[in-house]
Design a protein around this nucleic acid. Structure first.
Lengths: 366, 366
DNA sequence: GTTTAACCGTAAAACGTTTAACAGTGTTGG
DNA sequence: CCAACACTGTTAAACGTTTTACGGTTAAAC
């Protein structure tokens, strides 16, 4: 029970071999006679020997580290990505170092510096805003990296993995329109995030085209409590919309909290489409209709992409990968389309049918 | 734009000083003349110099690393703890390395080994089961560590931070009993987790005492989908309980999903007390009454404790810290106590009153 | 029986820092 | 005026690995 950690030298001494042999036993780099190997193992075990990473890294130049940066660890979407990334990387002998920018550009920059000081062999980052931090730009030619989610696909500085956000917005809007909604508000987290802008643009375009006027855009931020207040404020000054599209899970939570505060029934008095697909969304009597982002698939694609990049070096052209979101239909969107033939352009649909649960069967649309 | 990262040597050469001086400029260990300092900074900037952690660690023996192990990254409770820990540690110049055991003892052991190979200066761990992994036991005298949440407070091998789980269970049970519930089921995640056992025991004791018979215990596991199925299975074979205490946020989600599947209204047809306090719990028309664990406070306490331990060395006696959970009363528990004087021992209370929202004001009970 | 080759070990030189020991300057106190 | 000291900077020795170059056996090939 000595205080100091034993080094390879002591293992070598105890086993009666050179340190190079000990190194070879553990790294498997060169073959070692079986019984020697055994006695080295024995000696190492006896001393409780453990490789010193720092020394190993220094000498070999390989760190086997993958750095991961996300805007918020407590957002299940990012947590899912990290979790997936961690197992994938670990399975291939890499260790993952995680940092969170807490949705703050200053912090992001500082954490990124810390991350890079580990000399990672690869980086997977979800930038917290549209402005790619300088650290990333500087590193792009020397460090394999892939940017995920909050990135513009055009003119990206590195490989990207994201979803077709415009399409996602369109799907949500179309679903609402098909069910007869006209008076639609869109809750966004921040117009500084490219995907949010795209979702919003996608939804807004479809809605404008169908209704002739653009939907209301509500900026609710990335903090749930603040978003709730913002939505409540807005509700006080405006007529309540028929339907709300929340372009983020955080936004959805803000909207739902605000509606709950006023005991506004969903979907009887307001329809909601949420973003992302979490357990709590279906663990309610009126399950939330939502746009699902394939978090697992995003993580796996990013990892696959990073490995390719690590293999190929920086001279391959930048590759954007775009995945597709899908609509999960549950019960939070009311169907306003009248069963009897009527003027479906009627704007006052809200008061038409009497409140009641939507009893259509739940189904998935690709 | 050279491929290779510049070392301290090149910075020294460019600035025309010795490498020791460069080191002093960055570490601040010894004072350096202002203009020299400036020219070193200049040179470093010019070359894009960045300290090599591996070399630094190897020589100094200090890693400034805190290792953190949790059972599941996607569980918001743990994510919150990590997030808090990360900022606290970072503010004091430490870097955090996170690993998830994915609720698997094998994985836990393997990840722990990886974590320890970083030679961290401290470790904060949430073990995934009651059996403390051997790696931790081995390290307890050489590595400052604090065990969080899933630990028994008695005979702990290291400092612990947890909540008073028995009390938490009691609070939940008492709340239900006070509101006239008798037929109570308890959903647990795993009886291999000491806190869960304590919560269960606390609740069960109170319930047994009041009703004369023990509550049903439902083992729903740590996976939401599996838990939902388990609960549905159970519901098929048994009369639905008046009230359910879910001793975990995952369990709560399982129970809620199952109830939602059968469109069982809360609290009209079933009352629910959940665990932990998340945004989605209040973002519903009938907010969930829940036992709140102070995740932030747990993280901060653990960090404070770890710092003390790092300062004091391993010879101080082990200190358990116990925090308190609190009941957040919302609307998911129905009040069965009759307004007119009646036999409150009536077991068939379920059919008595007609379904309706509980409109009592939301209030907190410490 | 000598040459080659294959095999398995070892010695020693890195890797990029930190740090103890030292050295060269003023500056100050006696 | 000299010893003592503070102040800054340098030299060189670590730290624990990996890895290159080499050496010594043994077996195979001629």
């Amino acid at each position: 029970m000595s205080r100091k950690k034993p080094s390879i030298k002591e293992v070598a001494a105890l086993a009666g071999v050179s340190i190079a042999t000990v190194s070879n036993v553990f790294s498997g780099r060169k073959p070692v006679n079986d019984e020697l190997k055994e006695s080295v193992r024995q000696a190492a075990h006896e001393l409780g020997y453990q490789l010193d990473r720092a020394a190993s890294q220094l000498r070999s130049g390989r760190t086997r580290i993958i750095a991961v940066l996300v805007p918020d660890l407590t957002d299940t979407f990012f947590a899912t990505i990290i979790s997936r990334l961690e197992t994938a990387a670990y399975a291939e002998g890499y260790d993952v170092i995680v940092a969170s920018s807490h949705n703050d550009r200053e912090v992001e920059s500082s954490r990124l510096k810390a991350l890079l000081s580990w000399r990672p062999e690869g980086l997977i980052a979800v930038p917290c805003s549209a402005t790619i931090p300088q650290e990333l730009k500087d590193a792009r030619h020397t460090l394999p990296m892939v940017l995920v989610d909050r990135v513009a696909t055009r003119n990206a500085i590195a490989d990207t993995v994201s979803i077709d956000n415009r399409e996602a917005g369109e799907i949500a809007a179309r679903h609402l329109l098909e069910r007869g909604h006209r008076n639609i508000a869109i809750g966004v987290s921040s117009l500084d995030h490219p995907p949010i802008v795209e979702r919003k643009d996608g939804a807004a375009a479809i809605i404008s085209e169908a209704t002739g006027f653009p939907p209301t855009i509500l900026n609710l931020g990335t903090d749930i409590a603040a978003g709730t207040r913002a939505f409540l404020d807005w509700m006080e000054r405006n007529p309540q919309p028929e339907a709300i599209i929340a372009l983020t899970n955080v936004t959805a939570l803000s909207v739902l909290s605000a509606l709950a505060e006023h005991k506004i029934d969903i979907p009887a008095r307001a329809s909601v489409i949420a973003f992302d697909d979490y357990a709590w969304m279906s663990a309610r009597n009126t399950g939330l209709t939502a746009i699902r982002q394939p978090a697992d698939e995003i993580a796996e694609t990013a990892w696959a992409r990073l490995k390719i990049r690590i293999g190929h070096g920086p001279h391959e052209p930048v590759t954007p990968t775009v995945l597709n979101a899908s609509l999960i239909v549950r019960a939070s969107v009311r169907d306003l389309t009248p069963v009897i033939e009527e003027d479906s352009r009627d704007q006052g649909g809200l008061e038409l049918a009497k409140p009641g649960k939507d009893v259509r069967p739940t189904k998935k649309v690709h």
